[in-house]
């Protein structure tokens, strides 16, 4: 695994807790994970196991209470140029979070203009290219409300890709979709993985994991329980907790 290349994401002994009315909830306990450039990592686990929190910490949408996260050689803790890090890390959400007052094209163009300061023509060209890449070139002028869930999620992926990120984070990208739309999103993700994009995917799509992932990670109660190649993890998990979980979802 370690053949002279530095991991692009280094998560070292990360702790994270939330204070709620019912007391402190420990979301992450001593989580450590490295992701190499070009690697596709799938994180599975039951609800509340800390998979999404891990992902959001990589993007610093959540702050961490202990440990260290280094993305692309920049330690996130106290990073002043956090917006630069974020621009390099694309994120796709379960609920799409498209900007409803802008067209598909407008969604993809906006951050290019504001963050990357690209000229309008350049940004629009790129947006059209990306819409073609995710398979919906004809929907450029549609508003999110006029798109199906699968189309919206593909626009969201295109929006993240428009920033030319080095890493893509997917937070349950297909969970909010009808079964018939899941495939169109997964196809886009699969193509992306084949192109060599570094991806961290929180998903329960075993098919995708088997086809695209280099590694699968199982998390539970804020800990990484075990990690291995997806085929091995899914077919012959070594840990009892993993077996129990897989037996429920398969």
């Amino acid at each position: 695994m370690n053949n002279g290349v530095e991991p692009i994401i280094q998560i070292k002994n990360v702790h994270k807790h939330f204070h709620t009315l019912r007391g402190t909830v420990y979301a992450l306990r001593n989580v450590s994970l490295n992701v190499m450039p070009g690697e596709v990592v799938v994180i599975v686990g039951p609800s509340g196991s800390g998979k999404s929190t891990t992902l959001r910490c990589i993007n610093r949408l959540e702050t961490i209470d202990g440990g260290e996260i280094i993305v692309d050689n920049i330690p996130l803790k106290g990073a002043r140029n956090i917006n630069k890090v974020r621009a390099e890390v694309g994120m796709v959400f379960q609920s799409f979070n498209l900007f409803p007052d802008r067209t598909a094209l407008g969604n993809i163009v906006l951050a290019q203009r504001v963050v990357r300061r690209r000229r309008r023509a350049e940004a629009v060209d790129k947006a059209h290219d990306l819409l073609a890449k995710v398979g919906i070139p004809e929907k450029a002028d549609s508003y999110p409300a006029q798109l199906s869930g699968g189309q919206q999620q593909r626009v969201a992926i295109a929006r993240a890709l428009a920033m030319d990120p080095k890493i893509m984070l997917f937070d349950e990208p297909t969970s909010a979709l009808d079964p018939e739309m899941i495939k169109e999103v997964l196809d886009v993700m699969l193509a992306l993985a084949k192109e060599g994009m570094t991806m961290v995917v929180v998903s329960h799509e075993m098919g995708f994991a088997r086809a695209a992932a280099d590694r699968a990670v199982f998390m539970d109660e804020g800990r990484i329980v075990e990690e291995d190649k997806p085929d091995i993890l899914f077919s012959s998990p070594s840990h009892k907790r993993t077996k129990l979980f897989l037996s429920k979802i398969l």
């Binding site: 621009a87 994120m91 979070n97 951050a111 993240a160």
Partner: peptide
């Protein structure tokens, strides 16, 4: 989610 999406694209809070 809107703010998170915008921030994850690298926009600052004012942006």
């Amino acid at each position: 989610g809107q703010m998170e999406a915008a921030r994850s694209l690298g926009m600052s809070y004012p942006q």
